[in-house]
C-alpha cells in the first residue's frame, strides 16, 4: 500500500459517502444518474467475486464490502425509496447504458490476462468501470442546476482514478513484476473521460460560481 493508492481509495470512499449523504439525509437524488449507479453495482459485483476465493487483508475485504453494499443500496434507494425516487431526473437520464455492457463483456472475452472465469469477469469490470461514468456526465450536461454535492461526487470519483494512475506509476518503479496494461489503459481512458468535467469544475471553483456545463 502506497500513499497514492490509499489516497485514491479514501477519495473513492469519500465520493460514495457524499452520494449517500445526499440520498440518505437530503432524500434527493436529483442530478444523479441511476444508469451509472446500476453500472457501478455490476462493476463491483463482478470485480469483487474474489472475496470468496482469496484473502488479501482486512482492509481489502472491508473496502470491497463497503463498495458493494453502497453501490447496491444507492440503486435500491433510487429505485424504491418513495421520496428519493420522486427526485430522480428520469426524463433526462436516458443514456442507453445496457448497450455498454455487451461490448465490455465481448472485449473481456477477447482481451484478458488469463482465461478463467474470475479473471474474465475482473477484466470485464475494468472495461465497464471505464465507461460507467458516461450516463452521469451526460446527465450533468443536461441538468441546468448542478448542486454542490453532485458536483463534488463526480469530482471525487474522477480524483480517485487520477490518484490510482499515480499509484500505478509508483508501483511500476518500486515493484519488479508490476505490469498490467489492461488495468492501466482502462484506468487511463476512464480518467480522460473526466478531463472536460474537471476543466469546468475548476473554472467554477476559481470564479466561485455555480458549476454549469455547456450544452
Amino acid at each position: 500500500m502506497n500513499i497514492f493508492r490509499l489516497a485514491g481509495d479514501m477519495t473513492h470512499l469519500a465520493s460514495v459517502l457524499v452520494l449517500l449523504l445526499k440520498i440518505h439525509t437530503i432524500k434527493s437524488c436529483a442530478g444523479v444518474s441511476l444508469k451509472t449507479q446500476e453500472l457501478y453495482a455490476i462493476v463491483f459485483a463482478t470485480r469483487y467475486l474474489d472475496i470468496f476465493t482469496s484473502f488479501y487483508s482486512i482492509y481489502n475485504t472491508l473496502m470491497k464490502l463497503v463498495f458493494l453494499g453502497s453501490s447496491f443500496s444507492i440503486v435500491l434507494y433510487m429505485k424504491y425509496h418513495k421520496t428519493v425516487h420522486r427526485s430522480y431526473d428520469r426524463e433526462q437520464d436516458t443514456f442507453r447504458h445496457w448497450f455498454l455492457v455487451l461490448p465490455c463483456l465481448l472485449l473481456a472475452l477477447l482481451i484478458h490476462e488469463k482465461f478463467t472465469f474470475l479473471e474474465v469477469l475482473w477484466t470485464f469490470s475494468l472495461y465497464l468501470e471505464a465507461v460507467a461514468i458516461l450516463p452521469q456526465l451526460v446527465l450533468l450536461q443536461r441538468t441546468r442546476n448542478i448542486d454542490n454535492l453532485t458536483g463534488q461526487y463526480v469530482f471525487l470519483l474522477g480524483g480517485y482514478r487520477g490518484l490510482y494512475i499515480l499509484n500505478w506509476i509508483y508501483r511500476y518503479f518500486t515493484e519488479p513484476h508490476f505490469v498490467h496494461w489492461i488495468t492501466w489503459i482502462s484506468g487511463l481512458v476512464q480518467t480522460l473521460l473526466y478531463a472536460d468535467f474537471f476543466f469546468y469544475y475548476s473554472q467554477s471553483w476559481k470564479n466561485n460560481k455555480k458549476l454549469q456545463l455547456p450544452a
Partner: peptide, 10 residues
C-alpha cells in the same frame, strides 16, 4: 516464473 497476478487493488 511465479504466477504473479495482482488483485489486491480495489
Amino acid at each position: 516464473e511465479e504466477d504473479y497476478f495482482d488483485h489486491d487493488e480495489l
